[in-house]
């Protein structure tokens, strides 16, 4: 599989936010006046102009206060709920791994925002004609923001100064994640993204619980599009069966009514 992946090792992150800045610069996303969350992070959430943020958290580990940081962005699911929810094919999973957004096709219904189990897609609420915003994995085939298509790493990975972000094939990254976990007891025995929502292209390992950063740990391991498919697959059968039944009922009851009327007349006559 050629599916591209990023392994995020939270134990290596120093919270410098170079990735956040690189993302803004590469994607021409407007910056705003900082508004700090806990005086630690800027901004505290991704939004219509921000594809990625680094969360800063003070937490406890082995009885000591420690700081930990987590870069948050689209996880690029293997079977993305957002793409399955889009009724205009504006969001699509590419064979290369990225889940990309095509604004041309977007109607602006925001069902993708509701469908995403990780709350990733954001909206340009201040625009007259707002679009959805989310990390594109620096994949923009034939567009000006493309890096992956040119064989380059995403802007954030390229910028990371301390090896927190590692770019490669998903199989390789998953192997590397488990190698690190198994060779160092400080890690939580869990690769976030290995199984969540059926697996994601971005993978995380950490030495503090993932809940610290608000990662949802109760996400189903079954790909979300399958739930919908279990329902939608009945549509053709329902159309045929119910449509057929309605047609039969229509003509049967109509004829019965006519017969009853004729007989009524005959008796009356």
């Amino acid at each position: 599989m050629l599916s591209k992946s990023v392994l995020v090792d939270l134990t290596r992150c120093t919270g410098c936010k170079a990735c956040q800045t690189a993302c803004k610069q590469w994607n021409d996303l407007p910056a705003v006046i900082p508004e700090f969350d806990n005086n630690l992070t800027f901004p505290n959430k991704t939004d219509g102009n921000t594809y990625t943020v680094v969360q800063h958290r003070v937490t406890e580990k082995d009885g000591q206060d420690v700081m930990r940081f987590a870069k948050m962005q689209c996880l690029h699911c293997l079977e993305p709920a957002c793409a399955s929810a889009c009724f205009a094919k504006a969001l699509q999973k590419t064979p290369e791994g990225p889940v990309v957004y095509n604004p041309e096709l977007c109607v602006g219904c925001r069902y993708c925002m509701l469908a995403c189990p990780f709350g990733v897609p954001k909206y340009e609420w201040d625009e007259v004609f707002p679009l959805v915003a989310k990390c594109q994995f620096c994949f923009d085939p034939n567009g000006k923001y493309d890096r992956l298509g040119h064989g380059q790493k995403p802007a954030c990975v390229d910028t990371c100064p301390n090896g927190t972000l590692e770019f490669g094939e998903r199989d390789e990254m998953l192997k590397e994640a488990w190698r690190r976990i198994n060779s160092d007891p400080k890690y939580v025995k869990h690769v976030y993204g290995e199984k969540e929502a059926g697996g994601t292209n971005w993978l995380y390992i950490s030495d503090v619980p993932f809940e610290t950063f608000g990662f949802r740990t109760d996400v189903t391991e079954r790909p979300l599009p399958e739930y919908t498919h279990d329902y939608l697959k009945w549509t053709p059968a329902v159309i045929a069966a119910w449509g057929g039944l309605l047609t039969l009922m229509y003509f049967y009851t109509k004829r019965r009514g006519e017969v009853a009327q004729d007989q009524g007349k005959n008796i009356g006559a």
């Binding site: 399955s84 009724f87 205009a88 094919k89 977007c106 109607v107 219904c109 069902y111 004609f129 919908t228």
Partner: peptide
């Protein structure tokens, strides 16, 4: 409610048939 209201007709030609919203 849709943000790109001039684009409302899009699903008539761009078939996101995996979506319940499409139906």
């Amino acid at each position: 409610d849709i943000g790109q209201w001039f684009n409302f007709w899009r699903p008539f030609v761009s078939w996101g048939y995996h979506s319940v919203l499409f139906e």
